[in-house]
Simulated assay, not measured.
Amino acid sequence: MKRTHLPLNGLRVLDAAARYLSFTRAADELAVTPAAVGQQIRTLEDVLGVVLFRRTAKGLELTPEGAAGLDALRRGFLEFEEAVRAMQSQQSSKRLTIAAPRDLTARWLAARLAAYGRTDDELGFHLIAADDAIDFTQANLDLAICLSADKGEHEGVMVGGTGYVTVGIDAAPDRAIGWPGCPQTDNDPVITVADAGLAIDAAAAGLGQATVPALLAEADIAAGRVKALAAKEGEKAYWLIAPVPQWRQKKVKALVAALVG
């Protein structure tokens, strides 16, 4: 069934004016001018085809037609407010769903989520593996992390910069280890693996040298698993991204601040 178009602004003005029986006091509540209230009421009367208020010697008076629907109108506004609270309930939750590459989760993200989680017992995380086409609607995501040249169509912020590092061990031969998306090298890869994290593992095993995002290699270099052999700037970086509605959520802003800071 086709729904009737509701003049919601006019109905909100009617509610306020009926409570105060004063356009001036209604205007104060609604933060508009009395003239604007009067215009809204006249427009609503034209739409409904009834007179809602009359001016008398005692002041403003609500007509029977105007009074007839007030109880139902106010119940309706209460239902609207309840609907808004229901829609916002997930925003008040502190559980976040995050999509990220597996190697970044293992080497960088998990430790930072653990540290952030210790700041608030109510925080919770649902991690899923990111793929090339992140669908925020289908996965009900709050935030995603991707390795890309920019943030694309979403809101976002870069984390870790565009620095890349070539890693290996002392005895590592000068042979490249390839992975999807790795920067171009002078040598053909001696081995190709599924992601940059596995490239670091292959370098640690002595199979060759891997050029990977510096952010991803930080922990392995600090632990002495591999050595930083060279540095360069790359075209891609890790981006924290989300559509505007998710990006504006308080819980997402707090998480982004914790990860970037």
Rank of each mutant, 00 (worst) to 15 (best):
K2P: 03
T4F: 08
P7I: 01
L8Q: 03
L11F: 15
L14D: 05
L21A: 07
F23I: 08
T24A: 14
A26C: 07
D28H: 02
E29D: 11
A31H: 15
Q39F: 03
Q40Y: 04
I41Y: 09
L44S: 11
E45N: 02
E45A: 11
V51C: 00
T56E: 09
A57D: 06
L60K: 03
T63A: 05
T63R: 00
P64S: 05
E65L: 00
A67D: 14
D71M: 08
L73H: 07
L73M: 00
R74G: 08
L78W: 01
A86P: 02
S92N: 07
P101Q: 11
L104T: 08
T105A: 13
R107T: 03
A111I: 12
Y116C: 01
D120L: 07
F125T: 11
H126I: 15
L127D: 06
D131Q: 10
D132P: 02
A133F: 09
I134A: 06
I134F: 00
I134P: 02
D135V: 01
F136P: 06
T137S: 13
Q138D: 10
N140W: 02
I145H: 05
C146I: 08
D150R: 04
D150E: 10
D150Q: 05
G160T: 07
G161E: 11
T162V: 04
G163L: 12
G168E: 03
G181N: 08
P183K: 09
Q184P: 06
Q184Y: 09
T185D: 00
N187T: 11
V193K: 03
D195E: 01
D195F: 01
G197V: 09
L198Y: 04
A199N: 02
A204L: 05
L207F: 13
Q209I: 01
E218N: 01
D220V: 07
A223M: 12
R225W: 10
A228L: 04
L229E: 14
A230M: 00
G234S: 07
E235R: 13
Y238P: 05
I241G: 01
P243V: 12
P245Q: 14
Q246E: 15
W247T: 13
W247I: 09
W247K: 08
V252L: 10
K253C: 10
K253P: 00
A254T: 11
